[in-house]
Nucleic acid binder design. Structure first.
Lengths: 119, 119
DNA sequence: ACGCAATGCTAAGTTTGTCAAGCAATTGAA
DNA sequence: TTCAATTGCTTGACAAACTTAGCATTGCGT
């Protein structure tokens, strides 16, 4: 049951909305064309190059790794297992709407972005 | 002074040589076509999809993140800086041949692969 | 020598990311 | 209202990843 569909699209769309930026202003700040950004947010593009995800992660202040994961790229080393302990969290939270899920993901992104500090 | 050219190619080639595998046996084990592997190792392909790097990292027992970096993908979060303290290491090591550099990188990969253990 | 399998590689073709250009709708100022 | 700027989006073209099929060479068994 792998669902990697439009998650990235809606995430990027709401992140930009939250930042109050237009497609063209994002283009100005990141160098990513507005046409491409539109296709990204409408799920016309499935696997954008990591380079662009990195730029957007920087602008929106969300973790690069999260965008990579939403895009369906492998993020962990071959050996490691992914956090399926999150199933426990899912059980506690219960059913959520798409909007709620969206906001939870973004909030988690915010939390994680305030963690950094590798020397 | 960014040089990301044939590093990945030579790294993958020597990793396969060290494993004593043919292109077709790697294809059998990873699902990556031998033609594509050949193009990878002869630098005909610049930016292979991370999915393939992940499979090869698993087979060759080298860090996925290292292959990503050799391919020129961003690997760190937008905030963090890359280890330019390695300039100190470079100063200590001095001039090295391509073969030496290759072996050093692979040895470092080996060291790193024995580190893992995220819960 | 003869075949035959395995090796690395290349040629042609399909798919898909990416951009430049431009279009329809909305907004706002005069 | 009218005009111009801004918005999101689509279209057409190009480049590059990726596959299938096949080639040339090498090695080995008989």
């Amino acid at each position: 049951m792998k669902q990697e569909s439009g998650k990235l699209a809606t995430f990027l769309a709401s992140a930009r909305a939250k930042a109050g930026l237009s497609l063209r202003s994002v283009e100005a700040k990141t160098g990513v064309s507005n046409a491409y950004l539109s296709q990204l947010e409408t799920a016309k593009i499935k696997t954008p190059a990591p380079q662009y995800l990195h730029k957007l992660a920087e602008l929106y202040r969300v973790p690069y790794a999260l965008l990579m994961e939403l895009a369906g790229y492998p993020v962990t080393e071959p050996g490691e297992k992914k956090n399926y302990e999150n199933d426990q969290l899912a059980a506690r939270i219960g059913v959520v709407t798409d909007d709620e899920e969206e906001q939870l993901v973004e909030y988690l992104a915010f939390i994680r972005s305030r963690k950094g500090g590798r020397s």
